[in-house]
């Protein structure tokens, strides 16, 4: 490599310096990337080994790299726990139903706002963007929802964030930047109206951004406990995250050494349940990602070009 470029460069020394700097830099990059990998992976690995190890040993800090005294008591307990099953059922309903509603509202709105011939496009955009930075606050929002009679109903968890302005903007940007104007022209000449254009041209060509939107919304619904905390108190309609909060956080005092013993569970496996719950509640949403990863990176790239 250095030989080939020799003729272009002023001196031999400069190349040697450059190559030395490059080598140091690359070593640094590789070392940092390995460090990064370990920092990300280790906590995840620890949860996995702790979920199948003897809890007493875990609590004493003796389970570090590999599982010790393997048992599956925690996982067995989870699948008998009705709280978790109910939470799971509710979360799946909220994720599927909520995301579907999100898409039904977001995509047509994004299309409308992407049309350059839409008058009042900018004022309407401002109408949406303003809410990103200004809100009535927790109490007025609560009272508004109370007035609508949605407190303590499953509906509130379906519609609480019906449209997210950021998601709307990236969908709009994507549609604006990727769908060639010629297509609109010829469709209009053929007599297609906006509904037809949206349904038959825009949606099929927006797979990338649709997968991004679905991922954003689905992850939001999956992880959301805030709205459930504020607007619901009935455990029958609460999502998995609220159940997790009760199991993982409320049963235990923090870090004072005596937390986490749950009545009825065998002592030396008691904490296994906690780790098993963490895994069981994370894996499903994790499995979604690889399926849409292909579209995802492309979608983020184009959708986010203009923030």
């Amino acid at each position: 490599m250095a030989k080939k470029e020799l003729s272009f460069t002023p001196t031999r020394n400069r190349i040697r310096d450059r190559d030395a700097a490059d080598i140091i830099f690359h070593i640094l990059v590789v070392v940092l990337s390995i460090l990064c990998f370990l920092i990300i992976v280790y906590p995840l690995w620890f949860v996995v080994i702790a979920s199948i190890s003897n809890s007493d040993l875990v609590n004493q800090g003796k389970v570090v790299l590999w599982p010790v005294d393997i048992r599956f008591y925690g996982f067995e307990q989870i699948f008998q726990d009705s709280r978790i099953l109910i939470g799971y059922r509710n979360t799946i309903l909220y994720v599927v139903g909520g995301t579907l509603l999100n898409m039904i509202v977001t995509m047509p709105a994004a299309y409308a706002l992407s049309r350059p011939d839409f008058r009042l496009r900018n004022p309407i955009m401002l109408y949406f963007v303003f809410t990103m930075y200004f809100s009535g606050g927790l109490v007025p929002t609560y009272m508004q929802i109370n007035r609508l009679g949605l407190i303590n109903t499953p509906w509130i968890l379906l519609v609480m964030v019906l449209i997210n302005t950021y998601n709307l903007i990236i969908a709009r940007t994507f549609i604006q930047n990727t769908i060639p104007n010629d297509l609109y022209e010829s469709a209009t000449l053929d007599g297609a109206n906006h509904f037809r254009i949206f349904w038959s041209i825009v949606l099929p060509l927006s797979k990338a951004i649709i997968s991004v939107e679905i991922l954003y919304y689905a992850v939001f619904h999956w992880n959301d406990y805030f709205n459930a905390l504020i607007y619901t108190s009935n455990t029958d309609i609460q999502p998995l995250q609220m159940v997790l909060r009760r199991i993982l956080l409320q049963n235990e005092a923090f870090a004072n050494g005596n937390g986490g013993v749950q009545g009825g569970y065998a002592q030396s496996s008691a904490d296994q349940v906690k780790y098993a719950v963490m895994i069981v509640s994370t894996v499903p949403i994790l499995l979604v990602y690889p399926f849409i990863q292909k579209y995802f990176e492309k979608g983020v790239m184009i959708g986010a070009v203009k923030g």
Partner: peptide, 16 residues
């Protein structure tokens, strides 16, 4: 999720 993250903190950084 945040709930799981915080409970991971609680076990990984426990005092004992």
């Amino acid at each position: 999720s945040t709930v799981v993250l915080v409970s991971m903190l609680n076990v990984l950084f426990a005092k004992n």
